[in-house]
Design a protein around this nucleic acid. Sequence first.
DNA 1: GCCTTATGTTCAC
DNA 2: TGAACCTAAGGCT
Length: 265
Amino acid sequence: MPEGHTLHRLARLHQRRFGGAPVEVCSPQGRFTSGAALIDGLVLLGAEAWGKHLLHRYESDLIVHIHLGLYGKFTEQAVPLDDPVGAVRLRMVGEQYGTDLRGPTACEIYTEQQVDALKARLGPDPIRKDADPGRAWARITKSRTPIGTLLMDQKVLAGVGNVYRAEILFRHEINPMRPGKDLGHAEWDALWLDLVDLMNIGVRRGKIITIRPEDDHGDVGYDARRPRSYVYRQAGRPCRVCGTEILHSVMQARNLFWCPVCQAS
DNA sequence: GCCTTATGTTCAC
DNA sequence: TGAACCTAAGGCT
């Protein structure tokens, strides 16, 4: 699930697997061949995530920018690696492990100026310790745009995706259509702190976990195959808190889920 | 095996 | 507003 927690988890993994040593880099699929040739054999100095963006910094000021988009995935193997299967955009091989990247929206060489521009256009990332939530609040508090749209806007908040959007609004009993400027400051502070908590749990656990223990009744009556969530992909099922049927609509071409009673306004 | 669907973003009309 | 990107999992036959 590529929301921000996935990218931060990958950054930590890549740092651990490849950081501080030379990396063999290639593009079996061929769509990153020239970029891969520039960094092949160089030492990976560091990996970090900003929202849903992943950056690999190599010697010689060379930076790889990766965005997974909807489909992108990394897979990992111990060396020696099997021959690439399918469209592998990027293969990185270190001393003990190698990783393949398939289906990303972006995998390209970035300059430091492009990195600066990226950071400048992204809102604060709840997973980053250097994040300033005041920047997000400044935009939200003066906007008539629905909070459900603002939370998904990477210029407002970096790293929040459709699952965290739906779940955080449920946890704070906020209707997705409420205008940003109608959020109270205390309400926003609580929402931000909760995002920091939940998204860091996501990084540690490798999946999105949002259900409070007191609302988790052993999932009696719930479909174990479905995501364990309050509202995300729960349309038509009873709300875990009040039993009302969870609703679904499409907002800005994205699936939106909410409880009409718990999130009445 | 085939069809639908998805956690995201950019671009064209 | 919709298409494109182009992968993989899950549900269905």
